[in-house]
Design a protein around this nucleic acid. Structure first.
Length: 882
RNA sequence: AGGCACGUAGCUCAGUGGGAGAGCACCACCUUGACACGGUGGGGGUCGGCGGUUCAAUCCCGCCCGUGCCUACCA
């Protein structure tokens, strides 16, 4: 029935947010999935949580706009298509740029709808009429506009800098796209002889082939062993070039011999050092990762091969002192896992510092808050150490950089419209930069580009800033921080008020899910096996703040069991509502339960008023939890309400009236049952939209309205304190009798006699049938004095409940039970007495605490005394029967 | 190397400065007319370890141990 309801919601336009809608706006933007991607559990979790919020806000009466869309995912998509090409034995270079890009568009057309279809299957209530794609014309226009403005402001500039280079992709990568992975490398120690023939320095390196690009050897200026030699020259092994010995304080005196080779063209430290000291930079690499002519005899070799050859030649030349195992961390391409080579290259950069300051400020001022709060530290850490962002990529799939180089003066013209002449020299010989922008550049604009920026649209006016962004912590740097910077810079306001960081999903053993590990759970399979609502409920119920989710089959079975329980409760209700109740209010629109109770014309029992009161409480607690992004709490509250209160107590109690012969009582209970169930359905709808709608539509009097149109029921008047107490007492007494039965091992069907004090006369009159039915007792008797020795006795609900038992075997059991009870009471009593005997406690603890302890002491003492008396009587009786 | 989490019942996890809870699992009893994906009852924990603050610590502080993640230029 899932697709049927989804289609019905779409047809009714329930997900569409109109700018004409007078209700208060509430918006969020989807983290756009890769256009060619497929739904994984991370998507399922994040989009379920967003859908929970979106539906919740709709039920609360907001004009909710959930902006959907997909990301072109530059390098990721290009790599996928290149792999497909490789399987056919081709390369993108052979195909040529135009044909290759056409091929990617074709790929997008083929697979682009899948992820959207899957999100719909999950129930996501996105405003699909507004769906966007990062490379559609509107968003492309926004990208150009931003690039041009930032360039004009001097924040975007060209520079030759040491960058991460992926030889396979043949493109530059940002630091974020080049994560470090552990590699079991070797540390080689190499002799660099002094030119004057007097001695040598030993130098350690993990990348011996880079010595071909060395332009110096450095020691620490205060190093007593080496500092005096600074200024002498060394003979570069294998190539024979003369390189100077220099001093720089970046050298770690403790490492190796305290001397380090300097390769400014291929190492970040050395690059900085080379700039400081004005050392020459030698690039030894072609873009494809093979060595170039600067590597002399090694030219043409790939890095890995060159390393082997260099080591062999060093050994042959007697310059290799030794080598040893050296596990370390090496940057790899995030997308193709190739080892990244640092090299100097001219690229477009975005100067981040001026943007980072405001982005930190707004979070400090709590204009945007992270949930859980701890992630703000991650956010700050990155922004505090911000470095320029390489935004150009030597790829073909993405936004082409709107910059044209003049064939005449060589300068760049940057413009939103394709220029016809150079803005510097007026020449007409312009060629657009071949490069495209980092895919995250367009993502950074997502919260406003999707609403029509740079035009001043009503959508922007209404829906920006968005209420919340929900995402994983892995893209706080990639995306969240950059959206914040761009939003502040171009919109003058934060892009979102809240940032919710969802948990990471792991397998049942806590291991990361990965294809290679084979432990991936496919959400689509779960949805068909257990139902989408079961998956959604399970994910929500596990989404506690600050902890990863361990997901296994047993968790999913729990979610499914809950859906089934709700379904069965609904079956009971439908069986007992017969033709529908005139005047029952389930489907009468917002605030269906109407004005504060008591509702005229509906007498209603205590049980009826109680369940509606608990519904109100559950709704309030759920909403407080959702507003604080405490999803697991919301799920737990609803679980407890539906299972522990509605099913375990109310439905059982309702059977009395429903199966009784008082038509008025029966009708009142039917009405309440329907209201309570409908209320539960509304409360659960954000978590499990399909089954709740299915049940709701089966209830009488629906009038074709959907849950989201009806909204949450308005709360009724508070249940008076004495009524709450009376219900608590009933629950306690029933539980008490059940406990006694259980502990004495009474078979089912054996009805016991129960005596309550005469002060409980009214209580017994009102709840006798409930006691009989739920605790399986005979009609309770009233008596002032205990009914004799042969009784199990317990305190419950302010009464002394006496369960009559005539069999002496039970008497002996009861003695043991009472002894146990007494032991527990005396232990508690001693503990409290100890506290009250402590002068420090009396003097320093707050007065209400002390009072509470005194009261507790009195209560325990009285109870213990009662137990002692009963015990004495029982022992006496036991003696008599023996 | 630094940072951030986490360590509570067999398992998965909530939680709080005034003698700890849930779900699942377990045990016992129950084919009671919504539901055995169920009902009722029950057992089970020196809240990772050691110190400190406090009248009082599972909770706050310090150190240690274990686990995970992130950042980072140790050649």
């Amino acid at each position: 029935m899932e697709s049927r309801w989804y289609a019905a919601w779409l047809e009714r336009g329930l997900f569409h947010a109109s700018v004409e809608d007078p209700r208060p706006p509430w918006s969020l933007v989807i983290p756009p999935p890769n256009v060619t991607g497929s739904l994984h559990l991370g998507h399922a979790l994040n989009n379920t949580l967003q859908d929970v919020l979106a539906r919740h806000k709709r039920l609360q009466g907001y004009n909710v706009c959930w902006m959907p869309g997909t990301d072109h995912a530059g390098i990721a998509t290009q790599v996928v298509v290149e792999r497909e090409l490789a399987r056919e034995g081709g390369t993108r270079q052979e195909l040529g740029r135009e044909a290759f890009v056409a091929r990617v568009w074709e790929w997008k057309a083929r697979s682009g709808a899948r992820i959207v279809t899957q999100l719909k299957a999950l129930g996501c209530s996105c405003d699909w009429q507004r769906e966007r794609f990062t490379m559609d014309s509107g968003l492309s226009r926004a990208v150009r506009e931003v690039f041009v403005r930032l360039h004009r402001e001097g924040l975007i500039y060209r520079d030759a800098f040491l960058v991460n280079w992926c030889p396979r992709c043949s493109t530059v990568l940002s630091d974020l796209e080049a994560p470090h992975r552990p590699v079991s490398g070797r540390l080689y120690v190499i002799r660099y002889p002094f030119v004057d023939g007097d001695g040598a320095l030993e130098i350690a390196t993990t990348r011996p082939e880079t010595l071909l690009g060395d332009t110096a050897v450095a020691v620490h200026p205060d190093d007593e062993r080496h500092a005096r030699w600074v200024g002498r020259s060394l003979r570069l092994p294998l190539l024979g070039r003369e390189i100077p010995l220099v001093a720089d304080s970046f050298v770690d005196r403790e490492f190796g011999s305290g001397a380090v080779k300097v390769t400014p063209g291929h190492d970040p430290n050395d690059f900085e050092c080379g700039r400081r000291l004005g050392l020459p930079m030698v690039n030894i690499l072609h873009p494809d990762g093979r060595l170039n002519e600067n590597a002399g005899p090694y030219a043409g070799l790939p890095v890995a091969e060159a390393r082997v050859r260099v080591v062999a030649d060093l050994e042959a030349a007697g310059l290799l002192v030794g080598s040893r195992e050296h596990p370390h961390e090496v940057p790899h391409c995030d997308r193709c896992d190739t080892v990244v080579e640092p090299l100097v290259s001219e690229q477009w950069f975005l100067h981040m510092e001026p943007l980072a300051g405001p982005a930190m400020q707004v979070v400090r001022e709590e204009r945007t808050r992270f949930h859980p709060r701890q992630w703000e530290k991650t956010y700050f850490h990155w922004l505090e150490n911000i470095r320029p962002w390489v935004i150009s990529r030597q790829l073909w799939w993405g936004h082409r950089i709107p910059a044209w180089r003049c064939g005449g003066c060589g300068d760049w013209t940057v413009a939103t419209q394709d220029p016809s002449q150079c803005e510097h020299c007026g020449a007409g010989d312009l060629a657009q930069d071949e490069d495209v922008l980092d895919t995250w550049f367009s993502s950074a604009l997502w919260p406003f580009s999707t609403f029509g920026w740079p035009d001043a649209t009503p959508e922007l006016e209404l829906f920006y800033p968005t209420a919340v962004l929900s995402t994983g912590h892995d893209i706080i740097f990639f995306w969240v921080a950059r959206m914040m910077m761009m939003g502040l810079h171009f919109m003058g306001d934060v892009p979102f008020r809240d940032v919710y960081i969802h948990p990471l999903i792991r397998d049942a053993e806590g291991k990361k899910m990965s294809k290679s590990r084979g432990n991936v759970i496919d959400p689509i399979e779960v949805m068909s096996a257990h139902g989408t609502d079961a998956l959604r409920y399970t994910l929500v119920s596990l989404s506690a703040q600050g902890r990863d989710i361990k997901l296994g089959e047993s968790q999913l079975e729990g979610g499914r069991a809950f859906v089934t329980k709700l379904w069965n409760a609904a079956r009971f209700a439908l069986l007992n509502l017969d033709a529908g109740i005139p005047g029952a209010s389930a489907a009468q629109g917002r605030g269906a339960r109407g004005e504060p109770q008591p509702r005229e014309g509906q007498p209603g029992s205590l049980y009826d008023r109680w369940i509606l009161h608990r519904l109100d409480r559950a709704l309030a607690e759920t909403h407080a939890a959702l507003d604080a992004y405490r999803f697991n709490d919301a799920a737990a509250v609803l679980y407890h309400f539906v299972w522990g209160e509605l099913c375990d107590w109310y439905i059982e109690l309702a059977k009395l009236a429903l199966q009784g012969d008082d038509p008025a009582a029966r009708q009142a209970t039917q009405s309440t049952l329907q209201d309570a169930l409908a209320g539960a359905l509304a409360a659960l709808h954000p978590l499990m939209p399909f089954v709740t709608e299915e049940i709701f539509q089966a209830l009488p009097g629906g009038n074709g309205r959907f849950l989201m149109e009806r909204g949450y029921p308005a709360p009724g008047a508070a249940l008076p304190e004495p009524e709450i107490r009376e219900m608590d007492e009933l629950v306690e007494v029933i539980a008490c009798i059940r406990r006694v039965r259980g502990e004495l091992g009474l078979p089912a069907g054996v009805r016991v006699r129960v005596t309550l004090p005469t002060t409980a006369r009214g209580f017994v009159e009102r709840h006798g049938p409930a006691l009989c039915a739920l605790a399986q007792v005979e009609t309770p008797q009233l008596a002032d004095a205990p009914p004799g020795a042969s009784a199990a006795v317990a305190q419950a609900g302010g009464f002394v409940v006496q369960v009559a038992l005539d069999d002496p075997a039970f008497l002996a059991d009861e003695v043991r039970r009472l002894e146990k009870t007494l032991g527990r009471l005396e232990k508690d009593l001693a503990f409290v007495a100890g506290k009250l005997a402590n002068d420090q406690f009396l003097a320093r603890a707050r007065a209400e605490i002390v009072n509470a302890e005194r009261e507790k002491h009195g209560r325990l003492a009285a109870e213990a005394e009662g137990v002692r008396e009963r015990l004495a009587r029982l022992r006496h009786a036991l003696g008599a029967t023996a």
